[in-house]
Design a protein around this nucleic acid. Sequence first.
DNA 1: AGTGCGACCCGAACGC
DNA 2: TGCGTTCGGGTCGCAC
Length: 272
Amino acid sequence: MPEIAEVETVKNTLKKQILNKRIKDVKVYYEKMIESNINTFKRDLIGDEFIDIKRRGKWLIFELHNHYLLSHLRMEGKFFLKNTNEELAKHEHVVITFEDNLDLRYHDTRKFGRMNLISKEELENTECIKKQGLEPGDKALTASYLQKKLKNKSLPIKSVLLDQSIISGLGNIYANEVLFYALINPLKKASSLTLEECNRIVEGANVIIKEAIKMGGTTIKSYTSSLGVTGRFQTKLKVHKKEGQLCPHCNNKIVKIKVGGRSTYYCPNCQK
DNA sequence: AGTGCGACCCGAACGC
DNA sequence: TGCGTTCGGGTCGCAC
C-alpha cells in the first residue's frame, strides 16, 4: 500500500523515464477513476508532455505545460511502462501513450486510485492539495506545531496521525511505526500529548520516512512499485503486522488492536 | 467543527 | 475441494 515513501519512489523512478515525450493518445477504461471531465481530460493531455513530476503528501503531481495531472495511488495503484502493442492487462485502467509508442499504464486492482487534471493556476486552490499538512522532513514540522494541531482533538493519537491535514503522508504502516519509535500508546488521546511526546513523534516521522524513502518504500501485500523497483523497508518494520512476535526493545509480545477501524500494532509494555 | 461510520473495490485469507 | 464470508486500507461524504 503506497504511502509517502512509495509515492516518492514512484516519482523518482518515473522522472527518469517519461519526461519531455509528446503524449499522442490517452485511453480510460474505468471512467470513475477520473474526477475531472473525461473528454477534457483526454483532450488536454494529448499533444502536451510531462515536464516534471512532484509530490505533495501521497499525491503525485505530473506537471505539463498548461496543466497538472494529479494522481493518488490509494492502496494498490501502480504505474507500469510498456510498449503500446502489448496486450492490455487486467486492472490497467488508464493508458497514456507517448509518441515513441511507450505507454504509461495505471494499474489498480481495487480501483481506489483517483486522477484529476487541473489547470496550473488551480493547484493551490485544489482541495486535496490545499488541505495537506506539513511533511516529515520539513523544518516547520516541530513539536509545538504538532501540539497545537492536537490541542482540540479528542481522538486517539493513532487516528490523528492518519489525518493528512496535520502531518502529510503518513499511512497506517508508518503511523504504527512512528508511535513505536515515540513510545506512545496508540489509544492515547491526542490532546493529552506532552510537548516532549510531540517531539518524539516528529523525530520518529522524520527518521522513519527518511529511511523508508532511502530504501524505496515498503513492499507489503500486493504492493510493488513500478518498473521493478522493490521497496526494502519492510525489513525495518518493528511492529506493523508483527502481532505475536517479540518487541525488539523488551521482548514482550506485540499485540494487534483496532483503532478507528484500522489495524494497529504496538508493544503494550513499551507504549503504555 | 469535530467525530463516527459506511461506501468505494476486489483478491486473499479464512471458515465450514 | 469448493463454496460463501470476512477483511483490508485511504479518503470522502453524510449523519449526528
